[in-house]
Design a protein around this nucleic acid. Sequence first.
RNA 1: GCGAAAGUGGCGGAAUUGGUAGACGCGCUGGAUUUAGGAUCCAGUGGGCUAACACCCGUGGGGGUUCGAGUCCCCCCUUUCGCACCA
Length: 874
Amino acid sequence: MAAYPFIAIEKKWQDYWEAHQTFRTPETPDPDKPKAYILDMFPYPSGAGLHVGHPEGYTATDILARYKRMQGVEVLHPMGWDAFGLPAEQYAIKTGTHPRKTTRRNIDNFRRQLKQLGFSYDWQREINTTDPDYYKWTQWIFLKLHEKGLAYQAEIPVWWCPALGTVLANEEVIDGKSERGGHPCVRRPLRQWMLRITAYADRLLEGLDDLDWPESTKQEQRNWIGRSEGANIEFPVDGLEGETIQVYTTRPDTIFGATYMVLAPEHALVSEVTTPDQQEAVEQYQQEAAQKSELERTELQKDKSGVFTGGYAINPATEERIPIYVADYVLASYGTGAIMAVPAHDGRDYEFAKRYDLEIRPVVEGGNVRQEAFTGEGPHINSANDDVSLNGLGVEEANERIIAWLEAHGHGEGHVNYKLRDWLFSRQRYWGEPFPVVFVDGEAQPLPEDALPVTLPELDTYEPGDSPAGPLAEVKDWVHTIDPETGKPAQRETNTMPQWAGSCWYYLRFIDPHNDEQLVDPEKEKYWMPVDMYVGGREHAVLHLLYARFWHKVLYDVGVVSTREPFQRLVHQGLILGETEYTRYLRADGTPVSADQVHAGIDTRTGEPVRARTVDPRHVTKEGDSYVLSDDRSIRVDARAHKMSKSRGNVVNPDDVIKTYGADSLRLYEMFMGPLEQVKPWSTSGVDGVHRFLNRVWRLLVDEESDALRAAAAEPSKEQLRALHLLIQKVTEDIEGLRFNTAIAAMMEFINKAYKWDAVPQAVAEPFVLLLGPFAPHIAEELWQRLGHEESLTYASWPVFEEQYLQHDEVEIAVQVNGKVRGTVAVAPDAPKDEVLAAARADENVARYLADATVQREIYVPGRIVNFVANGSA
RNA sequence: GCGAAAGUGGCGGAAUUGGUAGACGCGCUGGAUUUAGGAUCCAGUGGGCUAACACCCGUGGGGGUUCGAGUCCCCCCUUUCGCACCA
């Protein structure tokens, strides 16, 4: 018997939904109805198409959206494309194809794939960040940012990537290489647009508290913002009148223990404080530091290096002369790029002081500074001058007192510092939003609103030049324009915005996608915002989610939005890995090597490289905690599921899965694999399993021979109603808790039970089909229709479970003797305690244990358990 | 190094407030059906010991609390994911 006709069914219902605009969200929703804005992170439409990771989150949100619709909730569930970005441009450089063309083709493919999966998006609201009608508003937001002084230009050292021909943001460069492509990057000062996200640091921090987000994601954002409280302190340079070194410290209370200072190699004052005889050594050190990559600097962190500058500073608290060093363990990018070193109470300073034999002076009691730095709390010692004393104070009081003293004497002030830095907002690319800015006499002028959108011109070549000006600089008749305000000749900004720009506010445009008067209608915004459920990958935990929150807060200040936060609830779907692979290792001569002797492709005993071979799972046996070859148990193999990648060849293509098993099976499997948020390996036989389940559902209700409906007109039995209502309760609660895997398991259990019935009454079949609907909508629609309904089940009422049907005549209760189960008894749920205990004692096996024992205690938890605590039992 | 999460059968994973560990699925075994294969249906499937009942052991390891612990507490091990000289 072949599978149920899923190909025909899925096509039929996708066409039906399209023709009937089933999932269209009304322009003006019913204000009295509850609403749910259920949003997926929109994808970048890559040339490779959808991978199986996409439908995971999308299926979860689709189940929610369909479930809510059936509960009479107004649902907004849209989809769009984050379509600006490098790959299309790089493809253009290679082939000369316009990125617009590539982008359109990729989007068409993505849309086709998503429609094939039966997701209930309102396609009328589809948006595309590369559409001028869309990016007009991205530009409009930039004007607002500029107006509020939040967009500015700065000449700063930035990461320039020669291979990509662009500047990248700090967060797009990892270990000195581009996040995408792994090309080497160098630091280089350039004029750039910056967004003053730091002005919102505190609000971005505080806003996190009330969000229903994963705690780890909130923590990541907090770490990224990196707020710390401390003080900026001025240390005069000895012998240089009026010159001071400013340091930032979170422990101003330890200033009496500051026995030396350290400047970052890039610090502006290095050359000034360096004495002639130290000049050569210092310059050499600076050069070495400049050549080290970020990676090398941190990798070698155990080995603190530095050079004495020959110069001295005055510690304002002790008025002692302290030496100034240059060392790369101080970062130019954090704080002021200079520190006061307190080796007695800071691990890094301690290490450095030990190496260069500098004074270690304890100022907090506790620990043993002969052995290690003491970073704990304790009363202060050795911390007094003629004016102020911290001695005897705890850390907090000492900080307060010393900051007051520093401020009173003009040596410094309390200061809040952030790790977060302003957002580098320009890219030297073509395929991005142009800035709505022109330069008149070299001055940046924002364009008036009616000049928007500033559209991209056509290019002759996409080749990035050697100059960081970007490809747009070559289009002379686009660059040279007239300032609409003054009528003067002007030049356009040739940089474009980064890919993050479009995704910072797309969730607002979905609310009112075709409005050409406003970014979003305020009435509609008030109705739909905030996003009630936002599902997307953990990789966006900081960047996208922080940038979007920043823009949202700016739009709040401008009055465009009514909520302080955009995404009330956030969930990350877990990564789907490839199928578990077993790997064995071989030496060059073909002799096997046990996996426990291999590390990073090297035989740890000989240092020889080994070859890796995949082994068929059938030839592997588990032994203890490890896996070995069945024919040679002395040879261990590695068992691991790897991230899907083209190079590994373990990528699963959703199109193939749909062809073999159908979209409903793919959706169901992705949800059945395990908890939504968990990382989990793909298994093709697992897809087989859920596919079999759908076949069973089909055959239960449709006769194989005649294709006729098999549901019976009979009245449902008590047992059938109980099974049904248990299922309704379970599925409802599990959807609410996003436990889709256990909801599916419960439906499978129900179907297994139903196979033992003579017939399935219509009154049981119908609610079941409705419960299945959000998970496997195509087969559910088909069955719903065959059950005699003319309309789609999309807006049918979600079944409600009734307590009365859940009652059981008898409950089975475990009977323990001294905590071990020795039998079970069946009793009425409301049976009195005495009766239950008597029944329990009567159980043959229980009686055997109690025969020679004295019962000291009887425990009865109604409906659950009986436990006899006895001594002297056999 | 710091922080977070997680360790349960051959595998993916279930187990309300502590109350019959292993739901459901995969895989495997046996049976039915079938010309055969496949598909389907039924039964079984943590380990040990059994003819069977029973019994013993079992949720990474060790201790503890409790009538009762996968679940709570303490110590340790492993894995994954963040962050990583942040002064």
